[in-house]
Design a protein around this nucleic acid. Structure first.
Lengths: 116, 116
DNA sequence: TTGATAGATCGACGATCTTCGATATATTGG
DNA sequence: CCAATATATCGAAGATCGTCGATCTATCAA
């Protein structure tokens, strides 16, 4: 499955297909949970990749739940996952965040955000 | 209830409270439906306020459902509602969209987005 | 005032989501 | 090879969401 950030369209795009609307909505939905907002915030503040075990305590959630949220963000294309031994490190995908910024930019009508 | 766009925090804010994380998530959740993405797109393309009855056909939804989606976007603070006789006109709130752009701007750590 | 029309609200149903405990997988150290 | 550890996946329970038909409210025209 393609990451939704790779298929989304700008909010002000001259035309939006059903597929693009769904991908764009899914991108926003991936940020539509307070714990996932906190994950993105923690990754943004730490300039470098962060291990799953370092996220469990600040989020106050069980390990399976943290994995679940990380998977949602990764599937959306916002996060990159990197295996280091038995640890999994996650970091923000800056390209995806640039795309997100273009999606919400109303002056970006002409910007070629969609790619489906 | 305060609009979530008025309480949200930047993704890269130096610190995010539970309340700000919830408001920020709710703002994204309000855009986390393909029909609501289309509504914002239609309002962005039409420079001027749009009547509810003009949205029903392009969305292919029932009138109560369109009202429901418009209420979600309005509650989030993204849309303004204006009564004109027996018609209700909706338009994008450009301040809210500017805030949204600041929320997703990772270089906006210093920007004072939160206000709770 | 009465009838018509626009829009909002209500109640219900099915689908999706968040969360958890239990378990499976994979990697490391001995 | 075995035990320990980190993470992912599974299955279930409860909450939330999108949608609809029915109904309520408000405005206009006659």
């Amino acid at each position: 499955m393609l990451a939704s950030v790779a298929c989304c369209a700008a909010l002000a795009a001259p035309e939006i297909s059903d597929q693009e609307a769904e991908a764009t909505a899914e991108l926003f939905r991936s940020l539509g949970d307070p714990h996932r907002v906190k994950i993105v915030n923690l990754l943004a503040l730490s300039g470098e990749p962060v291990c799953v075990c370092e996220l469990i305590e600040p989020l106050g959630l069980g390990q399976p739940t943290v994995s679940h949220h990380l998977k949602k963000l990764t599937d959306a294309g916002l996060l990159d996952r990197e295996q280091r031994g038995k640890w999994a490190y996650f970091s923000l995908n800056s390209d995806a965040l640039r795309t997100l910024a273009a999606v919400v930019d109303l002056k970006g009508c002409a910007a070629d955000v969609d790619c489906c």
